[in-house]
Design a binder for these strands. Structure first.
Lengths: 363, 363
DNA sequence: TTGTAGGCGTTATCAT
DNA sequence: ATGATAACGCCTACAA
C-alpha cells in the first residue's frame, strides 16, 4: 500500500501516482419492493403505498414496511418511478457557463426555490455552443425532467430545439439570455434602464465624452445596454463619436485592455467609459495603470454585473448590481407554477428586474 | 399582449411584470418504438436494434426505421432505456459550490472527458452542507448514474453515505476534498509541497518573519498547507510565533482583512504572509492599502489557487496555480476506467498533482 | 436478420 | 385497507 510506482507526465504537470489496491465491483442485486412484499407476505401495491405514505394504508403495515425497508437496505429506483409516474421531480437548467458569478448565483437561486418544493436541479453548461445546447435540451427532455430553465448561448439564433420541447409538453422558462420568438415565461434584467442609469451617473459626475466598450450588438443584452447608454447620452445632448464605440467578440480582460489602448490612440480621448461587463471594466482599469491614466480623474470607469472582483480591485469599480440569485428564484417560481398548473391554464409572464447602481471609486 | 398589470415588490427590488398570454400544456402522447414498429409492420426488437445501430440488422430496414423515427418525431425515453439496460451514461458530480473558479473549472475538466465517451454530467452542489451532500449522493445512486465524483463539503467527517453507495456497486472517485477512509481512486493537489514551495519562494526573497493566514486545521487541505508552510520555515531555521498563525472559519475577504489588522497590532510585525487561498490574499492586500502598508516592500503576500482575481488586482498576487481543469479530467478518466472495467479488476489510484508557482508583483 | 416474450422496478386502476 | 394486474418504454436472451 502507498507504494510509489513511477512518475507520470500529465499535460506538462509532474504527477506522481500511488498505487492503491485492486478492486472488483460488488454485484449485489438491489432490493426491490417485490422483495419487501415477499418478506412481509403482502402485495407490491401495499408496499408501494407504504413507501410513498399514501393515505389509504394501515399505519401498522406502513411502519412494518418502512422498518423492513431500512433493514434490508432498500432504495427506490428513480428511473422506474419516473417511468411509471411520468414525474421526475427534477428541473433541468442550461446555462452558458457555471464559471461566472452571475450564472452560478442564479443557479443557487433556482435550487433554493426548487428544493423547497422537493425538486432536484440538474445543471448543464452549453459553454456558449449552440450544438451543445441543442444536445443538452434534447437529453433533458428525453430524461423526462419536469421542466427546463434556459439561458441561451451566445451562438443561439434559432430556437427550434426549444419550441420542439415545448411542443412535447415540457414547461420551459427562459432567463437572462432570452428571445422574443418563444411563448414562455421569462425573467430578465432591465438592461436598457440599467445602462441608462449608470451612464446618467457618469454624466452627473461631470463627464461628457463617454465611450462604450461592449459585445456584439447581435446579442440582445449587448444591444439593450448600448441603447440605454445611447439614450442617456442623447437625453443629455451629448454626442457619441463612432470611434468611441468599441465592440469585442469575447468578454475578456485582454480584449478590454486592447480597447483602451485603441481609444487612447484617437485624438479625441474620452473622459469616461461604460463597459458592458465588469470583467471588461477591470481590463480597462489595468490598461489605464499601464498607460498612466488616472482613474477616475482622467477617465471614469463603469461596469455592469457587480462581480466580486469589481469590489476587490483598486480603485474599486462602479457598477450595476444584478440580483442574480433573485432572478434564479423567480425563474424557478415561474416554472413550478407552470408545472403545478399541469393542464390548467397558466399565465405566461415576463418579469423585468431592475439592477441597482453601486457607486465606487472608479467614478 | 404586453399589457402592464402592476408593480410588484420582489425582495426590495422594483420589478414590473408584463402579462403575456395564457397557455395550456399540450398533451400529445409521445411516440414509442411500438408505434414505429406498428407503422412499419416489424417487431419492436428490430426497431430497437435499428435505433441503437446494432450490428445484427439489415441496413435497409435500419434506414427505414431511422427515417420514420425522424418523420414521426420519435424521441427515446431515457428512463425506460436506463431501467432495462441498467446503464444511464450519466456521471454525477457533487461539489461544495460551483461558485468558485476551482470547482467550476474542475467540472469543465470532468465534462471534457465525459463527453468524449458519450457520458453526460449531472452537477450538484452540497453548499458545504453535510446533510445536503448525503441527500444528493443518495439521489444520484437512486437515479442509477453510472458513477459518482465527489469533493466533500467542509462539514463532512463521516463517510458512511459514500461507503453505502460503493457497496451498492456504484463506482466512486474522490477529488480535491478527499478522505483516507474510503477505498476509492482519488485525485488531489499536492498541498504540502505547494505550500512549502511558495513559502520557500518568500524566504528566497529575503523574508524571514512569515505569517500564516488560513482555515481550520480540522480540514485536511488546511492542515496540509500549513504543514508545508511550517516545513519550509523549519528547514530554513525560521521561527513561527504563535500570534503569526491566524485561523479563520470562513474564507472571506473580510475575515482576511481582520486578520491583517490583528497581525499589525502585534509588536512583532511579519514581513510576509502566506494565505491559504487567493481570496484571503486579496483581503490582506486591501487591508494593507487601508493601513498604508507597502506591498511587497513591507509585507509580501502569497496566495494559493490562482483565481482570476489574483491576476487582476494591483499589485497582482503571487500564488500557486492549481490545474483545476486537469484535476477534473483526471478524476473523470479514473471513474470511466472503473466503469469500463465493470466486474473486472480495477487498480485504484491516488493521483497527486503538483501546483505550480506563479510569481507576481506581491512578492 | 428478424420476431417472441419476459423482465427492468414502480405506479395506477381496478376489484375485493 | 389490500391485492391482482396491467401499464410505463425499452432491452435482450432465445428462438425462428
Amino acid at each position: 500500500m502507498n507504494l510509489r510506482i513511477g512518475w507520470v507526465n500529465l499535460n506538462q504537470l509532474i504527477t506522481y501516482r500511488l498505487s492503491y489496491y485492486s478492486k472488483i465491483l460488488p454485484l449485489k442485486k438491489p432490493i426491490t419492493i417485490k422483495d419487501l412484499a415477499k418478506s412481509l407476505n403482502i402485495s407490491v401495491a401495499t408496499v408501494s403505498r407504504a413507501l410513498r405514505n399514501s393515505s389509504e394504508i394501515n399505519e401498522e403495515t406502513k411502519q412494518a414496511v418502512l422498518k423492513l425497508a431500512k433493514e434490508m437496505d432498500y432504495h427506490p429506483n428513480l428511473l422506474a418511478r419516473g417511468l411509471s409516474s411520468k414525474k421526475s421531480k427534477i428541473l433541468g437548467v442550461v446555462v452558458p457557463t457555471i464559471n461566472r458569478q452571475f450564472w452560478s448565483n442564479s443557479i443557487s437561486g433556482i435550487e433554493n426555490i426548487a428544493y423547497q418544493d422537493g425538486y432536484k436541479v440538474m445543471i448543464f453548461q452549453s459553454t456558449e455552443s449552440f450544438i451543445k445546447e441543442v444536445e443538452i435540451v434534447e437529453t433533458l427532455a428525453n430524461s423526462r425532467v419536469d421542466g427546463i430553465l434556459i439561458a441561451f448561448s451566445k451562438e443561439t439564433k434559432d430556437y427550434a430545439h426549444v419550441q420542439q420541447v415545448m411542443d412535447r409538453g415540457i414547461p420551459v422558462v427562459l432567463f437572462e439570455r432570452v428571445c422574443e420568438e418563444l411563448e414562455t415565461s421569462k425573467v430578465v434584467t432591465d438592461d436598457f434602464f440599467g445602462a441608462k442609469k449608470i451612464t446618467q451617473h457618469l454624466i452627473s459626475r461631470g463627464k461628457n465624452n463617454i465611450a462604450y466598450l461592449g459585445g456584439p450588438m447581435s446579442l440582445g443584452v449587448c444591444k439593450d445596454r448600448f441603447l440605454g447608454f445611447q439614450s442617456a447620452m442623447t437625453d443629455a445632448g451629448l454626442n457619441i463619436p463612432a470611434e468611441h464605440i468599441i465592440e469585442t467578440e469575447e468578454f475578456t480582460f485582454e480584449n478590454a485592455k486592447n480597447g483602451i489602448y485603441q481609444l487612447w490612440n484617437t485624438k479625441n480621448k474620452p473622459d469616461a467609459i461604460f463597459c458592458f461587463a465588469d470583467i471588461l471594466a477591470i481590463g480597462a482599469l489595468d490598461a489605464c495603470k499601464e498607460l498612466g491614466i488616472k482613474v477616475p480623474e482622467q477617465l471614469s470607469i463603469a461596469g455592469f454585473g457587480n462581480d466580486d472582483t469589481s469590489r476587490f480591485v483598486s480603485p474599486s469599480i462602479t457598477t450595476m448590481a444584478q440580483p442574480s440569485f433573485e432572478i434564479g428564484q423567480l425563474a424557478a417560481k415561474l416554472i413550478l407554477e407552470e408545472i403545478t398548473a399541469g393542464n390548467e391554464v397558466t399565465i405566461l409572464k415576463k418579469e423585468v428586474i431592475q439592477p441597482t447602481l453601486v457607486i465606487r471609486e472608479s467614478s
